[in-house]
Design a protein around this nucleic acid. Structure first.
Length: 568
DNA sequence: GCCGTTTTCGGCCCGACTGTTTTCAGTCG
């Protein structure tokens, strides 16, 4: 229901944009955004509090509330259907093609009756864009390129794939003569799950020289934009990179502006206006006078709030909290002392227990829990009770031979279809850390899946629910699950929820935030399967920061002795 | 269409780059 309405309102916004209606499009966009970040179904809100309840949602007033009511009652919105009839095209599909916006969508339909990306491609093949469409050859080429880019599946990249590459590129640009300050901004600086492109900011006395270096840098395949202060290129990994050169007085303003996100920035600029200022990427101004811009901190402070970490800049309440100076002190990237999910070559990991322990120590960790798979996961050679006991004895031996790192005995026990576990309680009780997780029967109904998992959480030995929703970024959707019920059960059964730092990134940030609000603790794990994968902890911490987690909310920020006290 | 510690009416985020525009519209971030 919510996601349908989000799509409809976004589409209404674009349709009104096309008709050049003023201001209404922004109102519909805002409403869509509000609904998207809602934790409750609008249907529930309407049922409990009626149309008044809907109007209490920010960005939703009388008009849109009525439309939601209409949708709840009839399953459709007349106004939307009317607009759609005038322009019956796949707007979202077309506008996601770079360079195509609302007006181009209209032109494509009116001149050529093009309704979607496939139709567009066919029209280009027939040469219709230039012959009858009223488009120039250059525009046609640009659209064709964007289509190819989209078809290759290169939209957004998983954070963990792109962060190391971005850091390399920054190092490379640092070597250009004349580069002073350099930072990356955008979704990468916000450490979002996925990153669309690289936004790099530089200060330099020689902007045009820097631009020349940048567009000729090794790895650049194509230059899409080149100007005095901004250039954009496509790199050989099909990643777009944007470079902007700013003056030092404006560096903080630019960093703030290009870090975003968009909604956070809009909210900030609205606050600036109310205070009689103007905020842009060059600074905060009163009239012509610049009153802040050198650092992000001074801009936030002049706007009446404390500086906040990029990870939480989403306009999901952080601005309101910042205005009252009650921002959470987010967990820091160096705060994790131990890793509670680690696989070894006893199952599907690549390296031995000892190698993993030594690698963890090198990474600065004080302890790890070995949590190999169990027998239900036959493809990984999962441990049965007997082999698990043998592994525990082995860990005792290795612990005696190592210093500076403690190895805890653990398991990633498989939750069977009926919610029971595939390792006997008599063995589980002997372990330090029991993580339980789902690896099969992803297609159960929400009710059955939720019941199944809660049953496992009720086991007195299950300390942590590993990767609770089963999703993998860009690869696999989460299974259907009543997250609210899971969080409630976690509280009741004293089960820790995991924030998995591998490409699962599971729990998601919004669920972490809800868990913490419900005073459920989390564990940030790497789920490392080889010695180089402890670096995944960084992404797990980012995830937790986006979920507003503080150090105290995360059990493995404690020493292993203190951490164990928080388990069942 | 929404909203209010200047307002229940009159505002609504801001600027760079591109194209074919000779003064601005479209798109993007």
């Amino acid at each position: 229901m919510n996601s349908d309405l989000v799509k409809i309102f976004q589409e209404i916004a674009t349709l009104l944009d096309i008709k050049k209606v003023a201001f209404k499009p922004r109102a519909y966009e805002k409403a869509a955004f509000s609904i998207e970040s809602l934790s409750e179904e609008v249907g529930e809100i309407y049922k409990n509090k009626g149309i008044k309840g809907l109007e209490d949602i920010s960005g939703i007033g009388g008009g849109i509330a009525e439309k939601i009511e209409e949708y709840i009652k009839t399953g459709k919105i007349k106004e939307y259907q009317k607009l759609k009839k005038e322009l019956p095209v796949d707007i979202a599909g077309l506008t996601q093609i770079e360079g195509i916006g609302p007006q181009t969508v209209k032109k494509l339909y009116e001149n050529l009756k093009i309704k979607n990306a496939t139709g567009l491609e066919e029209a280009i093949k027939k040469g219709l864009l230039t012959t009858r469409g009223g488009f120039s050859k250059k525009t046609e080429e640009r659209i064709l390129k964007s289509l190819g880019f989209l078809k290759a599946g290169h939209g957004r990249y998983y954070l963990g794939d792109i962060l190391p590459i971005a850091r390399d590129i920054i190092e490379k640009i640092k070597t250009f003569p004349g580069v002073e300050q350099i930072e990356y901004a955008g979704s990468l600086r916000r450490m979002q799950e996925t990153v669309g492109d690289l936004d790099i900011l530089i200060t330099s006395k020689y902007p045009s020289k820097i631009m020349d270096f940048f567009v000729k840098m090794p790895g650049v395949v194509e230059v899409t934009v080149k100007g005095e202060t901004r250039s954009a290129v496509r790199l050989n990994l099909d990643i777009h990179a944007d470079l902007r050169v700013m003056s030092p007085e404006s560096f903080g303003a630019a960093l703030q502006y290009f870090t975003g996100d968009k909604y956070h920035n809009i909210a900030l600029r609205e606050i600036a206006i109310k205070k009689g200022y103007k905020l842009n990427e060059y600074g905060l101004f009163r009239g012509k006078k610049m009153i802040a811009g050198k650092t992000e901190k001074e801009i936030y402070e002049k706007l009446g709030m404390a500086w906040m970490s990029p990870e939480i800049r989403t306009n999901n309440g952080e601005i309101e909290v910042a205005l009252t100076h009650k921002l959470p002190k987010l967990i820091d990237y160096g705060d994790i002392k131990g890793d509670l999910q680690v696989q070894t070559d006893w199952t599907d990991g690549e390296h031995s227990i000892k190698d993993m322990a030594e690698a963890a120590k090198k990474q600065g960790l004080q302890y790890i829990a070995i949590t190999d798979h169990t027998k239900s996961l036959a493809m990984t050679g999962g441990n049965d009770e007997k082999r698990l006991l043998k592994q525990m004895a082995e860990i005792d031996k290795i612990n005696k031979s190592l210093s500076g790192i403690k190895i805890l005995k653990g398991v990633e026990v498989d939750i069977k279809k009926d919610g029971s576990l595939d390792i006997a309680d008599e063995v589980l009780v002997q372990l330090d850390v029991v993580g339980a997780s789902v690896h099969s029967h992803f297609n159960l109904s929400e009710e059955d899946q939720t019941k199944r998992i809660i049953l496992a959480m009720e086991n007195q030995h299950v300390d942590i629910l590993f990767h609770p929703t089963g999703r993998i970024v860009g690869r696999r959707e989460a299974y259907k699950l009543d997250m609210e019920a899971i969080i409630k059960a976690a509280k009741r059964t004293k089960t820790i929820l995991e924030a998995n730092g591998s490409s699962r990134l599971d729990l998601k940030d919004e669920h972490i935030r809800k868990a913490i609000e419900a005073e459920v603790r989390i564990a940030i794990d790497s789920d490392a399967h080889s010695i180089d994968q402890f670096s995944f902890l960084e992404y797990g911490i980012a995830q937790a920061r986006r979920g507003w987690a503080e150090k105290k909310d995360v059990i493995n920020t404690r020493s292993w002795q203190e951490m164990l006290k928080l388990l069942k």
